[in-house]
């Protein structure tokens, strides 16, 4: 194979392999024919998702029990120094929690924001950790499978729709989809323009929002994994050609692969952040729906 006349001829095969590898497969059988169809098969994505879950859980338990111990120590001995961050791990987790809390307060508001911190924190830490595990060669991110992002987006959707109905009432939430300016217009405009806007807002709120949440996260991570896969395929294909041109293309590809890896690490953070802050924005629009 390595001796094929044109290295580009190897590429379609490599990409098919890559796409197959990125599909939902049983965790113990990489060569499974096509994606998993049964709902109760332990898949590669789920195994890596559980690893991410376990990692976040362990980190959170370690940090929060440490915090509790130190709070008790500070209360008991009155030594203020016990309130200082204990180590780097604690500082990092605290910074993340503080980041989410500030986001919730900034976006949703001083009064309602803090209530949603655990929800937003779960999204952020789970997606971020999973994304980072997805960058390990062979690793998978929950966001790299449509099933995972659809599941997460559905949770976000359920929460903000639930909040919208409970905060504004069933009729009130639907009414809030029409801007108050239109509601004050004459009857004909209210029916015509109001009806049109209602239709747009209804579709946007109940269908587009969850869909974009799911697709954005998936598409970004999937595209990233494809790019990394294609560049590593380039490196493998061209490094096998012991010609000056082959080695040069291989070296450039390797350089790009490293740059893209750094970029994907950035994307891992950004997409976790975007998913979380959009969920916060949607919750905010539900909490304050009748104010618009």
């Amino acid at each position: 194979m390595a001796n094929a006349a044109n290295p580009m001829e190897l590429l379609p095969e490599k990409i098919t392999e890559l796409v197959h590898e990125l599909s939902v497969l049983p965790y113990d059988n990489m060569h499974h024919e096509g994606p998993v169809t049964g709902p109760f098969v332990l898949t590669n994505y789920v195994v890596w998702g559980l690893i991410a879950l376990a990692t976040v859980m362990v980190l959170m338990i370690v940090v929060s029990s440490r915090e509790k111990k130190q709070m008790a120590l500070a209360a008991q001995s009155g030594d203020v120094r016990a309130l200082a961050p204990a180590n780097r791990l604690v500082s990092v987790i605290e910074a993340g929690v503080e980041f989410i809390r500030d986001m919730a307060v900034d976006v949703i508001g001083q009064k309602d924001g803090p209530k949603y911190v655990p929800l937003l924190g779960t999204f952020f830490f789970l997606i971020l950790t999973s994304n980072i595990f997805g960058l390990i060669p062979g690793g998978k991110s929950i966001g790299g499978a449509v099933g995972g992002t659809v599941a997460l987006a559905l949770i976000a959707w359920l929460v903000f729709v639930w909040v919208g109905f409970t905060k504004n009432g069933f009729i009130g939430y639907f009414k809030s989809l029409i801007p108050s300016g239109v509601r004050a217009m004459p009857l004909a405009a209210r029916i015509g323009l109001g009806g049109y806007i209602f239709l747009l807002e209804f579709v946007s709120t109940f269908f587009i929002r969850p869909l974009t949440l799911a697709v954005r996260l998936f598409a970004n991570l999937y595209a990233g994994h494809i790019i990394l896969g294609v560049f590593s395929a380039f490196v493998v294909i061209f490094m096998q050609r012991i010609t000056a041109g082959g080695l040069a293309v291989g070296a450039v590809s390797l350089l790009f692969l490293i740059i893209m890896y750094a970029f994907e690490l950035f994307v891992a953070f950004i997409q976790a952040y975007v998913f979380t802050i959009l969920t916060a924005v949607y919750i905010q629009s539900s909490v304050h729906a009748s104010e618009h």
Binding site: V19, P39, V46, G49, M57, T122, G148, V150, A214
Partner: peptide
């Protein structure tokens, strides 16, 4: 293909989310 929301991923994601 790749854009199929696989139930084998959906419900474990829910469980993981709820636990966390």
């Amino acid at each position: 293909g790749s854009v199929y929301p696989n139930p084998a991923v959906i419900w474990p994601t829910w469980v993981a989310f709820l636990i966390l």
